[in-house]
Amino acid sequence: MTDATLVMSKVLVLDDASEHFEQIKQLCEDSRLLGIKPNLGSQGGVMAILRSNVDLGGILLYENYGGQAMGLTLAHAIHAARPELPIFLRRDGEASLAGLQSSDISMFCAAFNLSALEHFKSVLESSIFSRVYPTDLVRGITEMTLSSLQTLFKTCAVEVEAPYLVKDQIIYGEVFSMIAIESNWCRGYMMLQTEEERMLNLLRHAAGADAEPLTFRDLNSVLGEATNLVWGSFKNRYVGFRDDMSGLTQTQVPIIINHQRRYISFGSDDPQLCLKYNLVPLDDPQATPVSVFQRFVFNLSWSPDQFSENPSVEALVDSGELEMF
């Protein structure tokens, strides 16, 4: 991984002007965006995607998507369903929201056209990538989580996809764990999210036919153990024993969960760091992967300039702070 490509973000591209496809694709690549498009371009098809488990950082919407000025009608439906997602409106004329009604303007983060993209790229950077996660932190989180999952799922191959930022608040699957993350440079939460039945089937497959029947409680136990392993590694690596947190203001923010809508809010619009881990049985490499989504939400305190990694035992020995017994 390189600093430039370490963290990306997914955007839903709602643009049916095929003659501009290559330009929009290049815009996404230049802006570290992974663009996805709906197979069904109707409003129903778009809303179905937004109701699904898709982690998004924003939406690129053409004003005439689906017909003359139909993009505005769709924007109202999108904004009502997912108000946390920034919508960027592509226009044929001026790269501004001028000429729209005030009720329409409030739905959009910005407007752009394809003839003046340099300014728009900076808008995307400040809107979607408004929070910077240190490269060493992201790499370290990936390493410690892979190690933890491989410890618990010894009969599986565990792979991780490229990390990305999300602004949506959708919960993936039916079960998730959450644990507080605290240090002198960050305060927030880590979540692990997965699908209950598919993960249970994976555990049953690993246990074998002669094992005791597994239930959702066994899944809860495994997910809880994975969460503890990652948090323990995080604490050992990034929360120093010299950290003085006595002077920190212990701010708390209510966490809102809507089970019916699979929605969770931490009271912050800051982009969350998301990583997706895929588990596949070693004896069935063609099986559909079972996914575990990991999210970090540093909504209570975030000072990345104070981020540092604790020295290893070898480094402490070399510095003279420790000696081998």
Rank of each mutant, 00 (worst) to 15 (best):
G267N: 02
L282N: 13
F266A: 04
Y133G: 03
V313E: 06
D55T: 12
W302E: 08
F120I: 09
F293W: 13
E125R: 13
A116D: 15
D218S: 01
L300R: 10
R82H: 13
M245K: 07
F21W: 03
G66K: 09
P285K: 15
D305M: 11
Y164L: 06
S183T: 11
S18L: 11
N64Y: 09
R262G: 14
E182D: 14
L219G: 00
A80V: 07
L152P: 04
H79V: 01
M324L: 14
V253A: 02
L60S: 00
V222Y: 12
Q169K: 13
L165E: 00
L74D: 12
V11N: 00
L152V: 08
Q260K: 13
R90D: 03
N113G: 06
S148N: 10
M191E: 04
I256W: 05
A206I: 05
E63D: 12
R131L: 01
I24C: 08
F153G: 12
G67L: 05
E321P: 02
F112H: 04
L137D: 01
L27T: 05
E321Y: 08
I78H: 02
G267K: 02
D244Y: 01
F108Y: 09
F307Y: 07
V230A: 07
I105H: 02
S221N: 03
R82G: 04
V138C: 01
I181T: 01
G45L: 11
Q43R: 15
R131W: 01
S148D: 09
A80F: 02
V46L: 11
S312T: 15
P311L: 09
T288L: 14
G140N: 10
R91A: 02
Y62G: 02
Q43Y: 05
F88S: 03
R131F: 05
A180M: 06
P304M: 02
V175D: 03
H205A: 15
R295K: 15
A162P: 00
V222D: 06
A4C: 01
N53V: 14
G93H: 06
G188Q: 04
E309R: 08
L33F: 06
E195F: 05
R139Y: 01
M107D: 08
T135Y: 07
E22S: 12
A116Y: 15
L149F: 14
G240K: 03
G58A: 07
L56Q: 13
L72K: 09
T73R: 05
